[in-house]
Simulated assay, not measured.
Amino acid sequence: MKNLGYYNGKIGELESMTIPMNDRVHWFGDGVYDAGPSRNYNIFALDEHVDRFFNSAALMDIVMPVTKDELKELLQKLVLMVDTGDLFVYYQVTRGTGIRNHAFTEGPGNLWVMLVPATVSDGTEPIQVITEEDKRFLYCHVKTLNLLPSVLAAEHAKRAGCKETIFYRHGGRVTECAHSNCHILKDGKLFTAPTDNMILPGIARAHLIRKCKELGIAVSETPYYLKDLMEADEILVTSSSNFCLRVDHVDGKPVGGKAPELYEKIRKAVVDEFLEATNKPVSEKAES
């Protein structure tokens, strides 16, 4: 298959898949999701993503229709059905099917999977971003399907010819981006927002922090502000689609560029981890 969709046991190319109208996702966006890259049919950091997926469901009182092991086995099986092993692996669970009612639908949720060809950026090309007030609700630590503020912010960035929108709360505290985490380098240290309910605890963020510590780079998980952002030595954006990107313009103003060697050391460490973990095709692993 060139791409793949899965819904409660039904499998097909995305263009042929249909979903019941009474799935609660249509009425309420009632569900949670997770996603990450696959290379050579290896799903990267799968345990971490599945753990976060199940945690998001538990925080929203959604009953999972599968166990963690069953989900991981299913995802690997589905990945092997696609023509290329370089994919974006997306999965979500919605709170069941029933006539529209704000109160919960009883029973297990509906499991969706989407696989599309994709590759991860190596982070060598800088990106441009805009800033925007963070108007999302206070469940940002849960990876829910309620993404309208992020959709609007992503469109605003696109119209401005930029790749991302960096959010800030009242008082100028930087939180994260429309669909990424945001960090700064200053005086040889990494500063990143704390994992409270203002940001999603990104998997790429966690890998970035671990690699910095391995490299002897101090990490401070504390709030920072727009002024700090604009005066940073470097601004980093991380996600499961793009492990480590460098920002060179914010709202049309040049930023960063003061610690290129440090950025390169971090970028290489993060990308190399992904390449090493996914270097050997799954088919070869099965034979060895």
Rank of each mutant, 00 (worst) to 15 (best):
V89E: 03
P126E: 03
V151D: 02
P117E: 11
Y91R: 00
Y168H: 14
M198T: 12
G172A: 06
T175N: 06
L71W: 02
R95S: 09
P149E: 10
R136Y: 04
L190N: 02
Y91L: 04
L87F: 03
L190K: 06
L75E: 04
T84H: 02
V82L: 05
G202V: 01
F137T: 15
L78P: 00
A153L: 03
R100E: 06
H141F: 13
Q92G: 13
E133P: 06
M114T: 14
D187M: 07
V129W: 02
T195C: 14
K72Q: 14
T97W: 02
I130W: 09
I166Q: 10
C182E: 08
F167A: 10
V120T: 11
K158M: 04
E176K: 05
D134V: 09
Q76H: 14
I127N: 07
G171S: 10
I130K: 03
P108W: 14
C162M: 11
P65E: 08
M114G: 05
A193E: 04
E155N: 14
P149W: 07
H102E: 02
L145C: 07
A178L: 01
R100H: 09
S121A: 13
P65Q: 04
V79T: 12
V120L: 07
C177N: 04
V113C: 03
I166N: 10
A103C: 11
I130A: 06
V79S: 09
F137V: 10
E125L: 12
A157I: 09
T119D: 05
V142W: 00
K143G: 02
E125P: 01
V113L: 05
E70M: 05
Y139F: 15
T175Y: 04
R100P: 01
V120I: 14
N101S: 15
M114K: 06
H141A: 02
E132Q: 15
L190M: 11
V116H: 09
V120N: 03
D122I: 02
K68E: 13
C162N: 12
G123F: 07
G161P: 11
T67M: 01
A154D: 01
K77L: 09
V66Y: 08
F104G: 00
D69T: 07
E176P: 00
E133S: 10
Y90F: 15
H170R: 15
I184W: 03
